[in-house]
Design a protein around this nucleic acid. Sequence first.
DNA 1: CGAATCTTTGAACTGAGTCAATTAAAGTGG
DNA 2: CCACTTTAATTGACTCAGTTCAAAGATTCG
Lengths: 284, 284
Amino acid sequence: MTCPTASPTSATGFPSRTGTRCTASDVLRWFGRPDQVSSATDLIEFQMRQVHAGRSLVVEGQPFEKLHLVSSGSFKCVQTDVDGYEQVLAFAIHGDIIGLDGLGQAQHRSGAVALEDACVVTLPIRDLLALGREIPALEYLLHHAAGAEVSRCGDTQYLMAAPSSEVRVARFLLQFARRQSALGHSGRRLRMCMTRRDIASHLGVAHETVSRVLTALDHDGYISVSNRDIELVDLSALYELQRVTRGRQSRERRADTARQAAARALVKAADSAAGRLIECPDAR
Amino acid sequence: MTCPTASPTSATGFPSRTGTRCTASDVLRWFGRPDQVSSATDLIEFQMRQVHAGRSLVVEGQPFEKLHLVSSGSFKCVQTDVDGYEQVLAFAIHGDIIGLDGLGQAQHRSGAVALEDACVVTLPIRDLLALGREIPALEYLLHHAAGAEVSRCGDTQYLMAAPSSEVRVARFLLQFARRQSALGHSGRRLRMCMTRRDIASHLGVAHETVSRVLTALDHDGYISVSNRDIELVDLSALYELQRVTRGRQSRERRADTARQAAARALVKAADSAAGRLIECPDAR
DNA sequence: CGAATCTTTGAACTGAGTCAATTAAAGTGG
DNA sequence: CCACTTTAATTGACTCAGTTCAAAGATTCG
C-alpha cells in the first residue's frame, strides 16, 4: 500500500516520535485524502508505538485485534513452518499496513519483525470498523489497503516465478525502488535494511545466490552495491533484464546489444502498456 | 476462502442453476453462519451467472465493480505480463471469492478464467458495502474473505519457495486436497481441471517438470495419476515429503525409511503443532 | 475424422544449490 | 575504546536437479 499522491513534505511531516498520538486526520492526509479531513477526524486519536530493531510487532498465532500503519522504519513479514524455516512474505515500509492477514480471522498467520528501529500507528480493528461507519474515508482506507495487499501478492508471485535468479533479483530491486519512489524517496539509491538471507527467503533462492547475483549485476554495470546500500545505475537495462521470462541470452550478448539504445525505447513502449506488472521507476 | 463448517448437504444444496437468483441468506448459510439469517436477508437477492469453460469472468484492467462467489466449477486467476507470459496466481473453487484484488482500487489487476463450466454469484461491491452497514454478518464476510485471501498468499509463497520441484508439487497437492475436504469433498480423490501448464505456472516450474514429478510420485506409490484425476494414495508419506525444506535425501533412501511406520507418528506430532502451514488432510 | 492442444518421455546442458572456507561487519563486555 | 565473539557476506569448487529443445503419444473439440 503506497500513497499515490504523497509529497516528500507530507512524508516527513508525519508524526513519528514515540508517545506521540496521531489523529485520523493525519492518517487520511498520509494516504492522500486531505479532502476527507474534518473536525471529526481531528478528534480521533490513534496510539503510536515504537519498535526496536529485531523486535516483533506481530507474532504468528497472536489474536487479531489491530492493524499497524508503518510510520517510519521497516519490517519483514514472516511465516515459520513446523521445521523452523522462516519464509519472508514481504517487506513493509513507510505507509504500509501490517496485519491484514488477520482480517476476519481469529488470529494472525504471519508475524512482523522490525528490520530497524521503527514507529507504527496502532489501529484497533474494532475502533476502525466502528469509525468506518461514520467516516467512509476510513472504511475505504481499509478496503484500499486490503486490495493493495492482495494485488501485491500477485507481484510477489510473479517475482518468485521467474526462471532465473538474476531475473528474480532484478524484479525485486525494481519493485522495491518503485515503492520507495512512490513515497517521494529516491528510486535509485536504495537502503536495504534486510539481510541477504531475508532477501533470499523472499525470492526463494539460496542466500549465496543473492550475493553472487548482486556482485554480478554490479560488475556488469547495472547496479552499484556498497554493503546494504544499492544504487540502480542503469534503470532501463535493469528493466530489460527483468522482463526475461524464459530462454534468456548469455551475459555477453546482453551486454553487447540489449543494453544499448534500443532498451530505452522499449522501456517507454512497455511503460505505457496497460496492466504492466512492474513499472520502470522514474529517474530521480 | 473455505467454509469452515460446511456440510456436504449445504454444499450441494446451494443454488447453482443459471438464471436462478440467490439470497443473502443463501450466501450466509453457505459461509457457515445460518444464525445470521433473518427475514431481511431473505429479501436480498444476488444475481447468478454461468461462465462456460475457457471464458473470462474477470479481465485484467477491468473496472472494479463486483466480486464473484464461486458456486460451482473452478477458475484460474491470472496476471499477464508485457511479453504475454501468463502467471497463474491461484485456483478458485467452490466457495472462493474472486476479484478481491480490486478492493479499493479502480480496476482489477488480475483476471479469472473458467477451467470448466461454472456458476458464480455476483456481488456488486456498492450493494455489498451498503448492506454491510445494516447486516454486520455481510460486512464480516467481506473482511473474512479478504483476510483469508491474504493468508492464502502466504501459503502460495511458501509453496513456491520450496527448493525442489518435487516438494512444490507435493505441497500443491496437499493444499488442494485440504481445500477440497474443507468443502466436504474427498481429500483423496482430486479432479484437477487445470492443465499441467497452469500448475507449472502456479508453482514456477517448467510444465515438463510437473509431468515428470507426477509420474515419479505415482511410481513411488505416493499418488495415483490417471489423466486429470489424481488420488492421494499415501497421505502421510506425501505430508512427510512436503515438509522437506532443504537438502533432501535421495529417492531410494526415502522409499526405504521415511515412508515407513515412522511417518505416521511424525505426521500426528506435526499435525498437532500450532501454526502449521499445511495441515495433513483427514482421510475420507 | 482431423486439427489443435495437452501430456509424456528422452537427451543434453547449465544454473543454482550445497558444502566449505575466508573476509567483513556488527554487537558485547571488560 | 579496544579485544573478543558472533553474525553476515563473499567467493570458490563441485554436483545435480531442472530447464530447454525435440519428438512422440494422448486427449479434446469442432
